[in-house]
Amino acid sequence: MPAEASTLPERSPLSLQNRWRERKVISALYGVRCQACGTPQLSQIGQALRVCVNCQARDRFEDYKFSDKKGRLFSYAIDQLQPTLNPPGVNGVVDFEGGGRLICELTDCDLDKVRVGMPVAMTFRKMYQLRGLVNYFWKARPAE
């Protein structure tokens, strides 16, 4: 049964060009690790990272895979307005073992059991479909 449409304004159209450039992030949750300071990092909006968020070294990155890293929930927000296929929108600040942070949607969780410090793992999911394009990306699920 279709969920009631969100009252929030429609999202920006998906860009195939942007998604092609960032295909490694989108399909395998790759980020980068700075070779100067060792900080793992992940773009929050699908942009290439060129300058390190921690030490500002330019273009000294190696690929770093986040999809297999365990994480913990640093904070969360349960959103009644969010346009999601899985309402209400449950969102978390996920801190990965070994470093790096992603703010993303949560899934497969019991609302009453979501808590700060909850262990999570990443899972590849359908986010939404817009103008004929299906958007797949990563969500966090409880891993207790």
């Binding site: 929030l8 999202r11 920006s12 159209p13 998906l14 860009s15 060009q17 942007n18 998604r19 960032e22 992030v25 989108i26 773009s43 929050q44 909006i45 699908g46 942009q47 927000a77 349960i78 959103d79 307005l81 969010q82 346009p83 999601t84 929108g89 969102n91 703010i103 993303c104 949607e105 986010m127 939404y128 817009l130 958007n135 990306f137």
Partner: peptide, 16 residues
Amino acid sequence: NSEGSSGIGPGYSAPA
């Protein structure tokens, strides 16, 4: 980018 998004942001509301 309002002209075309990667779609990876969760798109939660400002209150969230």
